[in-house]
Design a protein around this nucleic acid. Sequence first.
DNA 1: CCTCGGCATTAACCTGGGTTAACGATGGGG
DNA 2: CCCCATCGTTAACCCAGGTTAATGCCGAGG
Lengths: 193, 193
Amino acid sequence: MKYPTLYARIGAWAPIPEVEWDKAEALGKAVVFAKRARFLEPGQPADRFGFVLTGLFRAYRVSEDGVESVKAFRAEGELLGAYAEQLQGLPSATFIEALEPSTVLSFHSADLDTLEAGHPSWTQLARRIAEHHFVLKERREQEFLELDAEARWLRFREEQAHLIGRITQAEIAAYLGITPVALSRIVSRLRAR
Amino acid sequence: MKYPTLYARIGAWAPIPEVEWDKAEALGKAVVFAKRARFLEPGQPADRFGFVLTGLFRAYRVSEDGVESVKAFRAEGELLGAYAEQLQGLPSATFIEALEPSTVLSFHSADLDTLEAGHPSWTQLARRIAEHHFVLKERREQEFLELDAEARWLRFREEQAHLIGRITQAEIAAYLGITPVALSRIVSRLRAR
DNA sequence: CCTCGGCATTAACCTGGGTTAACGATGGGG
DNA sequence: CCCCATCGTTAACCCAGGTTAATGCCGAGG
């Protein structure tokens, strides 16, 4: 067992026997990413996923007219991958890029099939992960439907406080769906009150 | 087999043996909903789900300040339920309301456990459904991040063309995250061009 | 020490969409 | 047949957030 911290974290999602975990560690590869290096980028097959061991990534898209929007930040213990594209058998439409020097335990999509064939706990894990990510996205949908930019920023600051300071304000703005200028205005307006 | 159309539709998600399907039909109850009647509303336990047999529903929330935002429309063959709340063991925060006289094949959450205990195809189905709904929500997230109201309307008109005419423009506006007035403006502006 | 590149801030101006309200069309019920 | 409820339309006005651009603040590298 090389990654007990990760094992503990994932074990909370679904109870993975230690033997099974050892099989997974044998399949995965620890990969180092320099700042700005990419785990995945558009056009590449979405046939890999990974867990952040150390560091921080952002998953983002670039629209036709060149605007970057951030879908998520992923820190230690969290999952990396173009999950939606992978499920649909499409090539990635997403950049997944290190915001800090990072390390990742990286897998091929097929590794999951191998593990699932060997023990049902992996299937259970996969389902839990799908369900969890659904809940996250629905929460975000609700934020866009109900909240203006200031309220979204306040919620971000509350719920992802641990990220503030590690990422630039411009990246947060791209996550909130506004421009860096607008976020700066909001922040200073709140500071004034 | 009372609902072969539904069986065909769900069978496309995961291959359910006919015997298993018959068990499900025995657990489910066909329920009639008048227009405006509710399958579920906030505060109720999110312990049921159903499939639309005929008719049309909307799932919506009402924010603190009384604004309705529509999370989804659900027509024949589609799933009803406060899925996110159910997964989190929370009471519903969602209204699920018939927009037309409708019928639903309705289940208790526990029925799914029963079915899963009897045959693995139900587990597979549950996973597929989770994954599918994740993809839907991520697509919507992207629309809010990248598109303005006009572009969201155009995409809605394209992808959910079958709903237009069955639902009012005001309901579409609540789905797009804008006011009915704004949508009316957009529609007439496009008509003019 | 100076320079340069990346960020945040601020200002001026513009625009998409919100708000309120008046008006019209449609259609079902008495 | 008329009434009234429901919806969509349009107009006037307002404001949040976008756009562009200038300024200033580091911090890393020469």
